[in-house]
Design a protein around this nucleic acid. Structure first.
Lengths: 336, 336
DNA sequence: CCCAGGCATGGAACCGGTTCCAGATCGGAG
DNA sequence: CTCCGATCTGGAACCGGTTCCATGCCTGGG
């Protein structure tokens, strides 16, 4: 049916071995031969059979991206995840790799925890997007020599790509205290065990302490708008001057709930992620923007480094921090 | 390195042929043999090598999903696309297929138009999500016998899955005219060539005529919040009583812009998609919800039907319409 | 009792590439 | 002029499955 390497070789009057060498850019092929083979391949519109190549090279040129949704709904429904997925996908494609997209729910995650043993499956490596993957599964894979990188999450012994959550939050908090003079802050955090939200809370805490502002921290079970609203409800009685949420979804939920207060007593609100809708809230949401492209590039760089040399003294785990920049809008009290 | 079929066969004391038969559930295997092979596979934690299987069966059990972003930003940034991606992915997984995720930009689309010829690539079939794929590329693939299904788009001769845009919009418009008594309507549409937005406009038009309301239609170049705002700006001078946008992003943009008007003259606004943020606008956005799960199921049903019997008198193109239901909130003037 | 036919199994070809190895050719150094 | 090594090429093994075909067994009907 399809054009095979043998067809190309035949048309060019060479052996399959030589044709293969040409098409893989190997050395030791005479220029004339090279040109003939290339012409034949072009004429026949030859496309190599991936299964055959994968089989003989024992590599797939494919990376699996697992996205956990059920426990990560704020992102799953939002735009941060899709931006990262696209960025990762583009970065991989540029490197000649394909992306297998695998959304995974609680049941799937549980199953994952079981097989710390490695499924070579149909990918050369795995990216885990989101904070909810069981520690054991990640370290299990990494220890077994299976290339793994976590995104927006970190686990000892595995490569990771995260935003510089702490620094960004310190800078944002400094703005609230120093520029606006807020002295009483509240922070709406996510689950304690999720590294990136924990880091954001830690950043707020560190800067509040340094700046001498009071801070009360609450931890939501998930990080949806609903959770943000619920947390905000507890603040209605004695509202702080500013509420720092660890993502935009919760910030928007909180802002919504805080409308119940008269404008005079209504706290400033800030978020994190800079999703598309952050510009359209009333007032527009001050938040932190993370460069999704940098995340995609970093993740694929780390993973491909492992894939492309899995043999030598297994590399120590690396971590890439992507800078995150504060986006001042009006919800923090700024006038612009 | 990895456990192979031959290992399993050896351990069970049978030939590879028999082991293969057992693991594929074929008939003509004695029960005792079957049990021995199954036990051996379990003991060795055998996972079949996909490349080898793909090569010998000439099928990949993989479907490529192309998502066009640059021309589809409202969805690319929003939540409709990601919901559909997840739904498709789950449906395929249930059927034993993997999903190759391929975001594609304008340049990619252009390239696609060129090769009406078929790239068998690494997938058994292709799903195209979004309205921006060139006609020729789609029909080319379909004609070449390559399984294709379009989502949120339709092209003659190719399978398609879409929301029942027209009916939903008629019903929504009827509500505006009959229940609220609006007589002067405006509709913010998308590009004329995008089937689903065109159908939505057609639905509004049909019902407005039937109900005797006046209607002015505008067509935005894309369908982002910005486009919605720009369209709304033109309505400020002589505002209609209700503005029907063809998606939520534009509706939100329009609502935002229309705040410039005093409340008395401010039109009702409605959207389409029921993205997460529609509940949080002020007032909450009346819109139309599409069942993403149904889209995923439909698309995978159509595609797998083609994949699993590509030989017989090539099936005529089929089209699945997914019901869409109106979600009344306050932006249309309802009180609840 | 013999034979047809269904059941159960193994041998081997095959899918379409990559790559090891051996042989051939050629230019330059000794 | 011979020898050596670098360059070029083809034959064939191999990757790990699936499946065609041949074979042997067992059962039941004539």
């Amino acid at each position: 049916m399809a054009v095979t390497l043998s067809d190309v070789a035949h048309r060019a009057g060479v052996s399959e071995a030589t044709a293969s060498r040409v098409l893989n850019g190997r050395r030791y092929v005479a220029t004339g031969t090279r040109l003939r083979v290339e012409a034949a391949a072009r004429d026949l519109d030859y496309v190599p059979n991936r299964a055959a190549r994968d089989l003989s090279t024992a590599r797939t040129s494919t990376v699996a991206l697992l996205v956990h949704h059920a426990q990560y709904p704020a992102h799953g429904e939002g735009t941060f995840t899709s931006r990262v997925v696209d960025a990762v996908s583009h970065a991989l494609r540029r490197a000649g790799y394909d992306l297998l997209y695998v959304p995974i729910d609680d049941a799937g995650v549980a199953r994952l925890a079981g097989l710390a043993s490695v499924r070579p499956g149909r990918s050369d490596g795995v990216m885990l997007l989101g904070p909810a993957f069981p520690h054991a599964a990640v370290t299990g894979m990494a220890a077994a020599g299976r290339p793994v990188v976590t995104i927006d999450n970190r686990v000892d012994g595995a490569d990771a790509v995260l935003a510089d959550n702490r620094a960004a939050m310190r800078s944002l908090t400094r703005h609230l205290v120093a520029d606006h003079g807020y002295q009483r802050l509240a922070c709406i955090g996510g689950p304690r065990r999720w590294p990136s939200t924990a880091e954001r809370v830690a950043g707020v805490r560190a800067e509040a302490r340094a700046a001498g502002a009071s801070l009360s921290v609450m931890h939501a079970r998930e990080t949806t708008m609903r959770d943000g609203a619920a947390a905000a409800a507890e603040l209605l009685e004695d509202p702080p001057q500013a509420v720092v949420a660890v993502n935009d979804a919760m910030a928007i939920g909180a802002m919504h709930r805080l409308r119940a207060l008269p404008a005079r007593r209504r706290p400033a609100v800030t978020g994190f992620d800079d999703i598309a809708w952050a510009q359209l809230t009333d007032p527009p949401l001050t938040t932190v923007a993370v460069d999704a492209t940098a995340i995609g590039d970093g993740a694929s760089e780390l993973l491909l480094a492992r894939i492309q040399r899995p043999d030598p003294p297994s590399l120590p785990a690396r971590e890439i921090r992507v800078p995150a920049t504060v986006r001042l809008r009006r919800s923090c009290g700024c006038s612009r």
